[in-house]
Amino acid sequence: MTEIRYLAPRTLEDAVSAFAAAQGAASGTARILAGGTDLLVQMRAGVVQPGTIIDIKKIEEVTAITEQPDGSFVIGAAVSGATLHDHPRFGKVWPGVLEAVNLIGSKQVQGRASPGGNLCNASPAGDSVPAMIAAGAVVTVQGPNGRRTLPVEKVPAGPGRTTLTPGEILVSFTLPARPAGSGDAYLRMIPRTEMDIAVVGCGVNLTMAGGKVTAARVGLGAVAPVPLLVEDAAKALIGSTLDEAALEAAAAACRAACNPINDKRGTIAYRTKVAGVLLKRTAAIAAERAGRK
C-alpha cells in the first residue's frame, strides 16, 4: 500500500512551501485538496496516486467571500457551492456565475465542490469556468515567488493541465464591480436533467443601456481543449439591441470558435451546433436580467 501524507496548513505561506517541497520530492506527486470532489474520485479510480495531499480549507483567505467597497467580489478558491449559494448578496449580483457554480455535481457534492477546484481540475467541461470567463473574473495565485493575478481564461492549459507553475496555489477569484444594467447567465446542454456533465456550456455577461448592449463577454465550455473566451461573439453583441441578426452573428462566432472532439458525450457537429443555440438562449436570459435598458 502506498502511503499518503495529509497536510492541513493554516496559512498560505505554509501551504505554498509544503506544496513546493512535496512537488520537488521524489516520492510522487502532490495535490491540493479543496472540496475533493474531483481529487478523491480520481484517487479511488486509480487515476492519480498523490504522495502528499495539502488541504487548503483551513486557510481563511481561500474560504472567504468578500464584497469589496467598490462592489467587486472576492471569492476564495475553496468556497463551496452551497456556501456561495447561501451568501445574501452574491447571487443577486452574479446570478449566472452562481447558477454555474451550483451546477457542479449533485446537491450533496455542492456541500464540498468549489469554483477553485473546478478551475484547477481543468476539465474542458467544468461548469463554473465559462461563467467566470464571461464575468471577467481575475484569479489570484500564490507561489514560491509571491503573488500574481491573471484572467481566469489563462489558467486552463489543456484537459487536466493548468498554467500554474510548481508550488503555485489558486487563492481566489475577483469579479469586477457591476455597472448598472448588467446581467449574466449560464446554460449548459446535458442529455439528462440532472447528474450529468456539460456537452456544451455557455456563459454570457452583458451590460445594457438604452436598449443596446454596451459591454459583453461570452465564455464557452466543452467545445475545445480548454474553456474559451469568445471575443468575436462579444463584438457581435456590443452595440446591438440583441436583434436576431446580432444574435445569429454571435452564434456563428461561437460555432466558429468551437474546436471540439467526437466522443461519448457528443459529436463535433452536435457540439458546434449547440454552441450557437445556447449563445442565443443564454444571451436572452442575461439581457432579461440586465433589464434590457
Partner: peptide, 16 residues
C-alpha cells in the same frame, strides 16, 4: 467499452 460508468451510460434519473 468507452462508457463503463453511470455518468456516461445514461440511464434516466428521477427528474427525467
Amino acid at each position: 467499452l468507452d462508457n463503463a460508468n453511470f455518468l456516461d451510460y445514461r440511464m434516466p434519473v428521477c427528474s427525467d
